[in-house]
């Protein structure tokens, strides 16, 4: 058995054509997922039992089931339901890209909301009391104290979730999308060279992960600039 280098040279550019789609999936669902997560986290800490309960059920369901099943329910399952097919969101659910975004967003939203909650709960009570004693209102304390401190506390875990999300985008290939993994699977089906194709693609993913981590490290250092003694 040998490693077919010319094949890699030929396949790699083809696979990289899918990197745009991979990034679209990543960025779009990361942004929508973060917005969703903030909403769910606020519900969870609202103190209203019905909002908190609703948030907890959502988190429990989406963290307790495989992302692949979630993707299949949205893409293959929803069209079985009449109100989806007749609803105004049908253009989204008819399209595999829309379905992938919906499923990835719902999935990451559940994880991220818990990460954010951890950050908010991690804010020193004393700091908030000091704000209260100075006369800052509840919303002022949330905006000026809780939010910046909680963001820093949540960032490392959030970074890990972004990496997970990148890896989950590869599952879009199971619903016909031609992201990097989708293209790779097509090439393997034609050439039957799994080692060459899948290993070179794995390296591409690792490089993307590496740069994502660099970027997140930078943001972490910026948000954590006040935690270093020498300045």
């Amino acid at each position: 058995m040998s490693f077919d280098l010319p094949l890699i040279a030929e396949a790699l550019p083809k696979m990289l054509m899918g990197i745009g789609l991979t990034f679209q999936l990543l960025v779009l669902s990361a942004i929508l997922g973060l917005a969703l997560a903030i909403g769910v986290m606020l519900m969870r800490i609202s103190g209203k039992w019905y909002l908190s309960w609703l948030a907890q059920v959502y988190i429990y369901v989406f963290r307790g089931t495989p992302i692949l099943v979630q993707i299949f329910i949205v893409y293959y399952g929803f069209p079985q339901l009449d109100f989806i097919r007749e609803g105004f969101l049908w253009p989204i659910f008819r399209d595999p890209f829309g379905c992938a975004i919906v499923a990835l967003t719902l999935n990451t939203g559940a994880y991220v909301s818990e990460i954010l909650r951890g950050g908010v709960l991690g804010v020193d009570r004393g700091v908030l009391e000091a704000g209260e004693a100075l006369g800052l209102s509840k919303s002022q304390r949330f905006i000026y104290l809780t939010t910046p401190i909680a963001s820093r506390l949540a960032l490392p875990a959030y970074g890990n979730d972004i990496i997970s999300l990148l890896k989950s985008t590869a599952l879009a290939s199971t619903i016909t999308l031609a992201d990097m993994t989708g293209i790779a699977r097509t090439i393997v089906a034609q050439t039957y060279a799994p080692y060459e194709i899948f290993i070179s693609l794995a390296i591409v993913y690792m490089i993307v992960t590496f740069f994502l981590q660099k970027l997140l490290g930078r943001v972490e250092r910026y948000l954590g600039r006040y935690t270093i003694r020498e300045g």
């Binding site: 004393g126 004693a133 800052l136 006040y226």
Partner: peptide, 26 residues
Amino acid sequence: RREVGMVFQSFNLFPHMTIMNNLMLA
């Protein structure tokens, strides 16, 4: 609360703000 200042055992400065901003925020 505007009339009553408070100083805590554990200082409770806002860790993410400079000293100047700690004093200016409220």
